[in-house]
Amino acid sequence: MELLDRFAAGDLEAFEELFRQFQKAIYGWILRIVRNPAAAEDLTMETFLRMYRARARFDPQGNFGAWVRRIATNLALDHLRRARREVELPSTMPAAPEADPVLPHQLREQVSRAFAQLPAKLRVAATLALIEDRPYEEIAEALGISLGAVKSRVFRAVRKLRARLERLGIRP
């Protein structure tokens, strides 16, 4: 019996094997959206928990990676909606080696705050497209929306962000 079949049948060992295979990728994906390691860990566990509870609805012939990423994205989006006012985007996240922050600290804080004030669904699309450089097709699949809807969300996010930054006297 294949791994996904065993998982769909409720085999806990198969579930652990899938968890070990996918946890790093899912954690990384969620962290890109919520930018908070503790929340990302919590949401990673919640993703796998929901996935296990919904295993009967999973088609073993389907794309497991896409399915789990969709669940993770929805949970991350819900987290942003709930925590919109409380969560500050930390500017001290581990950066890719080439990302050398040259903006003054105060300016970075202002930009982070303006970004955090975007509606959650616009923020997710903008984070993944503009900061993380993820392909629009991948974002569309993870959010369960069309390519056009992703482009529209990024466009609206950019427009809102520019307006907020201009009110603060910041012109990128």
């Binding site: 890109r32 930018r35 982070s112 900061i131 993380e132």
Partner: peptide, 21 residues
């Protein structure tokens, strides 16, 4: 704007959970 945002909010690099979940 992309470049500006990446300076304020650096992209997340290769990463893993800090503990076994």
């Amino acid at each position: 704007l992309r470049d500006f945002l990446k300076q304020a909010l650096p992209p997340i690099g290769e990463t893993a959970p800090r503990r076994d979940l």
